[in-house]
Design a protein around this nucleic acid. Sequence first.
DNA 1: ATGCTTGAGGCGAACGTTCGCTTAGAGAGA
DNA 2: TCTCTCTAAGCGAACGTTCGCCTCAAGCAT
Lengths: 351, 351
Amino acid sequence: MSKSVTLKEVAAKAGVSYQTVSKVVNNKASVSPETEKRIWGVIAELNYTPNYNGRSLRRQRSNTVGYTWEPSPADQANPILDAFLQSMFRAAEEEGYYLLCFPFHADDVRMLKVYHQLYNTGRVDGFVLSRLNYGEASVPFLLENKIPFVAFGRLEDQDQSFPYIDVDGGQGIAQAMDHLVSLGHRRIAALAWPEDSRVGNNRLEGYYRGLAKAGLMSDPNLIVRGEGTSAVGFEATTYLLGLPVDIRPTAIVCMNDMMAIGAMQAVRTAGLQPGRDIGVTGFDDTPTARYLTPPLTSISQPIPAIGENLMKRLIEYLETGSYPEPRCELVAPNLEIRESTAGYVPAKGRS
Amino acid sequence: MSKSVTLKEVAAKAGVSYQTVSKVVNNKASVSPETEKRIWGVIAELNYTPNYNGRSLRRQRSNTVGYTWEPSPADQANPILDAFLQSMFRAAEEEGYYLLCFPFHADDVRMLKVYHQLYNTGRVDGFVLSRLNYGEASVPFLLENKIPFVAFGRLEDQDQSFPYIDVDGGQGIAQAMDHLVSLGHRRIAALAWPEDSRVGNNRLEGYYRGLAKAGLMSDPNLIVRGEGTSAVGFEATTYLLGLPVDIRPTAIVCMNDMMAIGAMQAVRTAGLQPGRDIGVTGFDDTPTARYLTPPLTSISQPIPAIGENLMKRLIEYLETGSYPEPRCELVAPNLEIRESTAGYVPAKGRS
DNA sequence: ATGCTTGAGGCGAACGTTCGCTTAGAGAGA
DNA sequence: TCTCTCTAAGCGAACGTTCGCCTCAAGCAT
């Protein structure tokens, strides 16, 4: 922090009381046009910027929003981090807010303590949460302590107890299913996440919807669960390709790009060609998805719009005391079709 | 911000003046052990946390560090962002500091205004800069205004006018060259960046060093410059593979992974196999590098250590008024050898 | 002339800290 | 006993704002 120009210095130079300068700065009327103009002149001349610590102290708000997120493992990039952060602090800046980033702790008790600390020390006015999962401890904690927040993601489908925006992952997977069905695929497998993943279940639900819409039966043999890594994708796919040829899938829908990467490797390892022999789709539309061999069909989320919307929502609440309607929102992802689902020729004789 | 417990409330309950409580909180001696214990008891009981706006106002420092970065285009992930941010705010938290993120502006004037604003409003005590390039306007501006900062990256090799940590990209490329030479490659091409890129030039310099060390001549035909995208990598490699067979390269060293991705595609398109026929190396060790086909040999940077070090350095300066020695540091990257440089069989007859 | 309204601006106080000085009292040395 | 030092604690002030209330003078209707 620097020794910077204060209200009093501006006031002295402009020949008014410093409180009057404050009024001008904050657009609180009852100042004559001439005086106001003169004051603005002095402000520009001295390059005055209001001290935010003084302002925050008096106003009892810091114009700062906190955000934390779980770090990605080294072999797995966070596909949305850059865009999400950028969109949030860009939207924040327009309203005179900034984004404070702080460390994530896997330990719930420790994490809640940090939230509490940050809020009670007056460092932040509220939080943005992301990647919620069943049993998220932060949500009830923040609600109970009346700490403002918005979330990217929801906990339960019908729960509107806090404001959120979420991507309808199920709809994304359903789009992928429609696409595969339209190409002629009839035996479609799913590489799903463990059952304790809310996001995973939401996406998987789109798989069932897709099957139902196409009038296909779901076959438990064709659903393999595991962590969303390429290793799991590889193993699961190797298993699927080893099934008897009459029940072997011709396409594999993966709940994220990492699994799809592993799946494509397994397809090649089995001497087959992804796209032509076995359709593969991912989810996230990782930047490198389009550079894989073959380029991966994937599902992209409108991250910038979500980040901007979340931040504006939170700020509106902080400023006015109520959230804009609708309180909760579900947005549709977009299917990006590439070669990993191109060129499939259905075998004759099968419907 | 919440209505939280203040010093005065703690003091009232403990039967001392609030200034004495302040002394205890800040470990400023001259308080008897019993009183101190009693005060700590009340603090715990009331769950007191010092208000940072009051503290910042009085201390004239905010314990906050600012950081901004250029957003990546949608098809190109920022390979270091997550790790860099995490390491920075983790190190900051240990010292009671936090990281404030704010929007990047390509327009220099606008960007400098933001730096000035953030510092003069007392929102931040200093900055971390990254991705410096020739003619970076922020460096002279911050130096001139005596605004504290540290940088990830340098401007000129011998310039020590500001504290920085940089990766010796040249050494990384030189490692890749050694590796390729040891495999028997004698004609090695480089996909370089435009000449106005300081980082690019630093890396390319390692290419020349590697050639010299192996006693090989540098051939201008084998150096192609362009933006660090996969499209450029593809085109440049297509050109290189079209050269007469006696001067055609057997290996291609790329200044980043994106170019290497394009290069490998071009190699395959030409009916050759990356690794066996043409060795390819990248730089950055993007998380997906290991999942490419074939897995890409690349150069990784010790990002977490750099982020932590930078933050600690800056905080030490803010606390003590001087930077720890050494003021500037160059760290070595690490070559990650994978299949894109495996299995090469040198043609007979050539040395 | 009187009283009422309105606009322009001043003023004291408060937000929650920390800083530096003062003071009361205890204990020590002469 | 007197002073001198030391420790524990108190006190006033200040950091830079914003808030609410007050004052003063001009304008206007009665």
